[in-house]
């Protein structure tokens, strides 16, 4: 549990290490990545290409594309990905293979 996070996790399960923008995080294995990042206190997943405004998860169902992150160089919707050990996650740079 992360007491600094605005979100509370009801259940505790096995955790794995991932990195987000270089910082190491311990997230629940197999969890929804967007939910796990929110619970870990990460609320800004990207900045918009137009104005640079910060964005975080919004719809949690794969429709809004606001939770885009780069995982191993590929841009993915964090809310459509499950946490696995060693994931290298970053805010999208805009030149990766993906929808942006």
């Amino acid at each position: 549990m992360n007491p600094a996070s605005p979100f509370l996790e009801l259940e505790q399960g096995p955790r794995v290490s991932v990195t987000f923008d270089g910082a190491q995080l311990e997230l629940p294995e197999g969890a929804n990545l967007a939910a796990a990042l929110l619970a870990a206190g990460v609320d800004v997943l990207r900045h918009t290409p137009v104005s640079g405004a910060p964005r975080g998860p919004f719809c949690m169902m794969g429709a809004c594309f606001d939770c885009l992150v780069e995982i191993g160089g590929v841009v993915r919707q964090a809310c459509m990905v499950e946490v696995s050990a060693g994931m290298d996650i970053a805010k999208p740079r805009g030149d990766a293979d993906g929808p942006v």
């Binding site: 996070s5 605005p6 979100f7 509370l8 996790e9 009801l10 259940e11 629940p28 969890a31 929804n32 939910a35 796990a36 929110l38 619970a39 609320d43 800004v44 997943l45 405004a53 910060p54 964005r55 975080g56 998860p57 919004f58 719809c59 949690m60 169902m61 606001d66």
Partner: peptide, 25 residues
């Protein structure tokens, strides 16, 4: 409404259903 921390109520429900994650405030 575009600020991080603003989500749909449906998203709040999905956080609870799938991940057991709840907003504290």
């Amino acid at each position: 409404w575009t600020l991080p921390g603003v989500m749909t109520a449906g998203a709040g429900q999905i956080l609870l259903k799938q991940s057991g994650v709840l907003a504290r405030r």
